[in-house]
Design a protein around this nucleic acid. Structure first.
Lengths: 239, 239
DNA sequence: AGCTTTTTTTGAACACGTTCAAAAAAAGCT
DNA sequence: AGCTTTTTTTGAACGTGTTCAAAAAAAGCT
C-alpha cells in the first residue's frame, strides 16, 4: 500500500507536472491566461490534454501553483533581507515592496489570480477555507513586522494590525494589477507614500489628543478584523 | 434608412430583450450565474440560443445590464430621499446604505459583476474605458454628497474626496459580497462604523494641530486620485 | 399588392475546460 | 520471470459560451 517516502514515490509524476507547469507559464506569459488553452499547454508539455487533469485539478489551479511559489519566493527574499532590527515603517515597506517585485515578472498570472480572488465561491479565493493555511502563512510575515520592530503600539491595535496590513497588501496588489504605468512606477510610488502614512498615522494616534479618535478606530477594527483564521466562503446562499 | 424615433423602431426587439433579461435574472437567482447556461436562459425566454447574442453581446453583458439598472434604481431611491440639506455624514451614510439595499435582492448577480470587475482587461470592468460614462454618473452622487452638504472641507481635499468616496463604496460592496452574515448584518454594521469614522477623520484633520499630517495626506491623495474620467485598462501588456 | 431592404431568429458548428472509462506504463511482490 | 496492484496517459465525449451563414419575419416603399 504505502511505499517508502512519498517524495520519492511521486517523483516521476512530479517531473511531468513540472514540465506542464512550465509550459503553462510560458504560454500564459506569451499569450495571456484566457488565450492559452489547456490543449495547447498539454501539447507544449508533450502530453495529451486529459493528462493535465491528473496533475492539476483545473486551469485555475495552475495559477494557484504560481501563487504558492510566489509566496515561497517572497519568503526567500525576505529571509535574506528582513533583519530583526528595523523600524515598523522600514519592515512594512520592505515586505510590501518585495512582494510586488517578486510578482512583477508575470502580471498576467497575477491578474488571473485576482480574478479568481474576487469570486468568493471559488475554492482558490484567498479568503476561502481551502486557503486557510496559506493565508495564515502570509499573515505571519505581518505579525513579524509588528512584533519584531522596535516601535510601540497600542496593545489593542497591535492585536489586529497584522490582519489589516495583509488587507493593505491585497489592496496594493489590486492597484498594481490595474497599474499600466511603465515598470509599475505608480504602484511603487503608492507604496512609498502610503507606508510612511500608515506609520505616521500609527504614531499620531498614540498621542493623548487622539484618544477619542483612537477609541473609535479600535472599536471598528475590533468588529471587522478579517479574522483570517476563520473566514469561510458561503457555498450557496439563497436570495 | 432611419425611420422615425428610435425608441419605437426598436420596441419589438426590446420586448424580446426584456423577456430574455427576465429569464436570465430568474435562472441566475435560482441556480447561480455559472450554473445557468445561455441555452437554458434562451429556452426560458422561448427563443433559440443563438438569438440571445442578438440582444446581449455576452453572458456577462446581462450582468452588466443588471449593473445599469441597479444604478438607476439607486438614483431613484436617492432622488426621493437625498435632500439638499444634510450633513456630509448623513448624506454619505444614506448613499452607501441605499446602494447595498438596492443590490441586496440578488447578491449572486453582484458577485458575478465583481468577478468581472476584478479583471482589468474586461470591457465590463468598472474601470474600463467603455464604462467611463457610468462611472462618471456614479461619481456625481459623491460630488453631491461633498458639495451640497453644510460641512466644511479643505479645498484640496474637497477636490479628490468624491473619487475616493466612490472607491470606499466599491470596498463596501466587495465586503458585502463576501459577507455571509444574516441579512448582510455585518456589512451594514461596517457602514455604520466607517461612515462616522470618515466624517470624524475629516473633521479632525481640519485642526491646526493636524497640519503636517494633513499635508502628507493631501500629497498622497493628489498623486493617486483615481481620476475616474481618465482610467483606461491596458489591452495587452508585455512581460 | 409586389418588391426591396432591414431586422430578427435559427440551428449547426467551433473551440474551450473538463470528465471518464479504458489502455498503457510502472512499481511491488513472490 | 510472472502476476497483481498502482500510477499515469489516452482520446473520445460532454456541456459550455459564442459565431455565423442562411432563413424567416417585419418594415419600407412605390
Amino acid at each position: 500500500m504505502f511505499k517508502n517516502n512519498e517524495a520519492q514515490a511521486l517523483s516521476k509524476s512530479e517531473k511531468t507536472k513540472e514540465r506542464l507547469y512550465e509550459a503553462a507559464l510560458k504560454l500564459f506569459t506569451r499569450d495571456g491566461f484566457d488565450q492559452s488553452s489547456m490543449r495547447a499547454i498539454a501539447k507544449e508539455a508533450g502530453i495529451a490534454a486529459g493528462a493535465s487533469y491528473y496533475h492539476f485539478a483545473s486551469k485555475e489551479n495552475i495559477v494557484y501553483e504560481y501563487y504558492l511559489r510566489l509566496h515561497q519566493d517572497h519568503m526567500k527574499v525576505l529571509g535574506e533581507t528582513l533583519s530583526k532590527n528595523g523600524s515598523f515603517e522600514e519592515k512594512l515597506y520592505l515586505v510590501v515592496k518585495t512582494k510586488i517585485e517578486v510578482a512583477l515578472p508575470n502580471k498576467d498570472m497575477a491578474r488571473a489570480l485576482y480574478r479568481v480572488a474576487a469570486n468568493p465561491e471559488s475554492p482558490l479565493s484567498p479568503f476561502s477555507e481551502e486557503n486557510k493555511n496559506l493565508r495564515l502563512e502570509a499573515l505571519k510575515v505581518f505579525q513579524d513586522v509588528v512584533n519584531e520592530s522596535k516601535d510601540c503600539f497600542n496593545p489593542q491595535i497591535k492585536k489586529f494590525l497584522p490582519e489589516y496590513l495583509w488587507l493593505y497588501q491585497m489592496g496594493i496588489i489590486l492597484f498594481w494589477i490595474y497599474d499600466s504605468s511603465e515598470n509599475s512606477k505608480k504602484t511603487f510610488n503608492l507604496i512609498d507614500k502610503t507606508v510612511p502614512l500608515i506609520a505616521y498615522f500609527n504614531k499620531q494616534i498614540q498621542s493623548p489628543f487622539a484618544v477619542p479618535f483612537r477609541n473609535k478606530i479600535i472599536s471598528t477594527l475590533k468588529s471587522f478584523a478579517p479574522d483570517l483564521g476563520q473566514i469561510t466562503t458561503p457555498k450557496k446562499e439563497g436570495l
